[in-house]
């Protein structure tokens, strides 16, 4: 056996766990799920081929479906940009040369290490209409109580607010990006007489666009799959105002055992996420700046 052959055999042996893992736990299930989406499959009986019926029912006769799409889109469309801006502003603040930054960095990052379930329980209580801390503060400052999860008009907005508590992880990524901008660029800018706002607009922001791009893509994919918030705090209510896509999918699959319908929903989600991701990638040529391009 020559060394090329030996390398090939050994190479595949070493990566065999992930090759098998991808086949068994990712690619196989994906294809199965695609097939299932064309079947009626109540779990305990064999899948029965029904063609496009799941998709047709989903798009035309299930009013909850469009509500779920709407809720998820609004949530992703607000929490992701707000989170990006919040994380960016905090990172800029932490990048200032003042004493005690280590303490503030830890404070801002702390919520990101709190288990999601614990932070949901905590925020459900902080935002309790009758006894919550936030309303106590609002009343003290002379405002009326805010209903948060108790009214359909405010429930989803409250979830967006809540999500901002966890911007610490994104902030750390921006901070590393900011530290990576060569000081020489700012020095050159100053020599040319640029003021701070100009330095920020023409150096900091363009140099940070690859990081912003990454956080945008990953944030979007995560937000499209929001589930726990609604499942734990509101069960989708009041009046379906927090009825997230994945909550509906969960109900179809695990309360009603409509595995075929749930698979169709999963594939539509994948399709939408894929299209959105491609759009963002496409648009990146217009706004993401890669250093290599100017070299």
């Amino acid at each position: 056996m020559n060394s090329r052959m030996r390398n090939t055999v050994q190479g595949y042996l070493f990566i065999s766990p992930v090759v098998l893992g991808l086949l068994i736990f990712t690619i196989g299930p994906m294809l199965t799920s695609f097939y299932m989406s064309f079947t009626k499959f109540p779990l305990l009986r064999a899948p029965e081929w029904i063609g496009l019926r799941n998709y047709i029912v989903m798009f035309t006769s299930d009013r909850n479906f469009w509500q779920a799409c709407k809720v998820t889109l609004i949530y992703a469309g607000t929490s992701v940009p707000l989170g990006l801006i919040g994380a960016f502003v905090l990172a800029i603040l932490l990048n200032q040369r003042v004493k005690g930054i280590a303490f503030f960095r830890t404070s801002f990052y702390m919520p990101a290490i709190v288990p999601a379930i614990a932070s949901l329980i905590l925020w459900g209580w902080l935002m309790n209409r009758d006894y919550g801390l936030i309303n106590a503060i609002l009343v003290r400052l002379g405002f009326a109580k805010f209903p948060f999860f108790a009214e359909p008009e405010t429930a989803l907005a409250s979830m967006v607010m809540m999500s901002l508590w966890g911007v610490g992880a994104g902030m750390i990524i921006y901070l590393a990006g900011l530290q990576g901008i060569p000081e020489s660029l700012y020095e050159a800018g100053k020599l040319d007489g640029a003021n701070e706002l100009q330095l920020f607009r023409n150096i900091t922001v363009p140099m940070m666009t690859p990081t912003i791009f990454f956080n945008l893509v990953m944030g979007m994919i995560a937000a499209s799959q929001t589930f726990m918030n609604a499942f734990v705090l509101t069960s989708g209510g009041p009046l379906k105002s927090t009825y997230f896509y994945n909550l509906m999918l969960y109900e179809r699959a695990f309360n009603w055992t409509q595995m075929g319908m749930a698979s169709a929903m999963a594939w539509f989600l994948l399709f939408v996420v894929l299209v959105l991701t491609l759009l963002v990638f496409r648009s990146s040529a217009l706004w993401v700046f890669y250093e290599a391009e100017v070299k």
Binding site: F25, M30, S33, M36, N246, S263, A266, L269, L270, V273
Partner: peptide
Amino acid sequence: PSTVTLIP
């Protein structure tokens, strides 16, 4: 999205 592999 892990949702796609969940059901199978």
